[in-house]
Design a protein around this nucleic acid. Structure first.
Lengths: 348, 348
DNA sequence: CTGAAAGCGCTTACAG
DNA sequence: CTGAAAGCGCTTACAG
């Protein structure tokens, strides 16, 4: 038992083999061993194979710390987020870390408030760890870091966050996604399409509203009233749905700025005895499974492709680290509409 | 513009100062500079101060890679999760990373399916990076890794996941949390307390049911029917609420196994015209803000204290890394009841 | 095709 | 109180 505990708990008595051990076992110099393992240099296949076999036999794991010291690369990235809740960050992080894993780079996660002092601590740690690059993310596309990034001497990429002038950033293409969602409604024959969404202060709300207007205009339709801006909550959707019905003429579809609002709307209609999608079709935004799958009926909604965003950001960062120029600017990445049952179309 | 881009993008022309620069500037040896900065060794305050001033002036950042190489410590931890969704993982990760940040250690996040091949890739990366320890987390307390962990030569801690015999693990104290939740109902004068929860196959569901029974027993009350096991979904809560009412005698309270179920229950009662909490009090489990705050009325529910779990796990891991023995076993960590309005008590 | 040697940036006995 | 030197585990000119 004591043995078992110490085996599980400590590194004591565990001696990793080094490249010297491999070289000795294969009867070559350390230089040759290094080259054989890294696939560099020219050497006979036999030698290379012999070194590889020795490494396998010794269960050799190169020490990337030592390698990093000489190559001046740590093969690590830092990911900063203030989304403690994880709604946006975890999908981004998962996409990022899995794309990076294939390339041998690991990512440090630092989750905390974007408050100057703790940010300074975090950035200091990232500098000391010599991360090769930084990705900064958050929970809204119009907020970035509250401090100016000191000159860190490392490339930085922004994802789902506001970026300073000249930086590289990745955000979902809110406008086109909204346009596609509304086109879906139009194609289904809906003509009186209302819009209920988040606060005017959010850029995402404005972009989605613009998409709504644009899709209506191209279809020759008038907006059904003004967009109803308020909080991103179910309560807003619920209240807005009631207001819409109380106002008299009934829309035949509603494009909602997020899934929570859509949820509130659907709940309100259920209580009023209004049928979705027969009487009114509903589209959401976010494809937040736990909401989109739980509404009755399940919600047709926009998926922002967050893992893809994380992945793209990581790949761009890798290019920058390798010294390849990456054009600065905001990349608006396409979203996809996930069709369920709330609009009456055949689900995907 | 080209300047600005290159400044933001690359490390070119950015030369970090090393401890040699600091030593030179302070007119001391590298040895003394190292000791001054690390607060080790004895030396005059004047010397130490001079070195620190030099470091500050040069904006010196110790290279933790170099330090790690000699100290055989990387000051990093790995966090493995298969909770892509982030529901449990991000709070754990946030608690862990912030507790670790104070101690100069950073944490690698690896999020992906717990599938043997990708797991092997991830573990390999962690080994090459020479992480000092590993924390393994997941989305249910009775599932761990699908493979046996190879002998990694590093300490491992489990959080919100099943752990092998002899390992150190941290989970919420589901039983006592459930007991507290039900006691709350009892103290409010409720006597007919039903239980609607997740699948029997989940350990968490069984523990919470046991807590429910135990609290009732100590109050001299009979369980109101059998616990209703099924999926952790709103749909289950919704259907179970209907079943309960259809069965005739009405409970005066329901302890729900999670917030989604509670949500379904509350929605069902709203449609049936049954008032919460006047007719029936409801308690949930998870304190998942987006549900707990959105129900009408807001939900009284159990908070598992996930950030604290992450923090405790990190601290235990640090002890193990330092060679201090940590008793193996499962640590059941206290939860707290967050009182809102669904039971009729005065909110916190 | 292969190797001896220098060096990445630190820490830490060892010596004074 | 302070420093010269060795060494952590690699990679990479340089030389043959």
């Amino acid at each position: 038992m004591a043995d078992r505990v110490s085996k599980l708990q400590s590194a004591s008595a565990y001696q990793r083999s080094t490249i010297r051990d491999v070289a000795a076992k294969a009867n070559v110099s350390v230089t040759t061993a290094s080259r054989a393992l890294n696939g560099t240099g020219r050497m006979s296949d036999e030698t290379r194979e012999r070194v590889r076999a020795a490494a396998a036999e010794l269960d050799y794991r190169p020490n990337s710390i030592a390698r990093g010291l000489v190559q001046q690369r740590s093969f690590t990235l830092g990911l900063l987020t203030n989304d403690m809740y994880g709604r946006f960050t975890l999908p981004v992080a998962a996409g990022l870390s899995s794309a990076m894993a294939d390339r041998g780079v690991s990512v440090f996660l630092s989750a905390g408030e974007y408050e100057p002092d703790s940010l300074k601590l975090t950035l200091g740690a990232m500098e000391e760890k010599r991360v090769d690059g930084l990705v900064i993310t958050g929970k809204r596309i119009d907020r970035g870091l509250p401090i100016e990034l000191p000159s860190l001497g490392m490339p930085v990429v922004y994802v789902y966050a506001a970026a300073p002038e000249g930086a590289v950033s990745f955000v979902p293409d809110d406008t086109n996604a909204a346009r596609d969602a509304v086109r879906h409604l139009v194609n289904l024959g809906r003509k009186k399409i209302a819009h209920i969404t988040g606060p005017r202060a959010f850029k995402a709300a404005n972009l989605r509203e613009a998409g709504w207007r644009s899709a209506l205009a191209e279809a020759g339709l008038e907006p059904f009233g003004e967009a109803m801006f308020s909080t991103w909550t179910e309560a807003h959707g619920y209240a807005a749905a009631h207001a819409l019905i109380a106002a008299g003429e009934r829309p035949d579809a509603i494009f909602c700025g997020n899934d929570q609002i859509a949820r509130g709307v659907i709940d309100a209609f259920a209580l009023m005895g209004i049928s979705v999608p027969d009487d009114i079709a509903i589209v959401g935004f976010d494809n937040w499974e736990v909401f989109a799958a739980a509404t009755r009926p399940p919600l047709t909604t926009v998926d922002m492709g967050l893992p893809g965003l994380g992945r793209s950001a990581g790949l761009a960062l890798l290019d920058m680290i390798d010294g390849e120029p990456v054009a600065p600017g905001i990349r608006e990445t396409p979203c996809t509409l996930v069709v369920r049952e709330s609009c009456g179309a055949k689900p995907d």
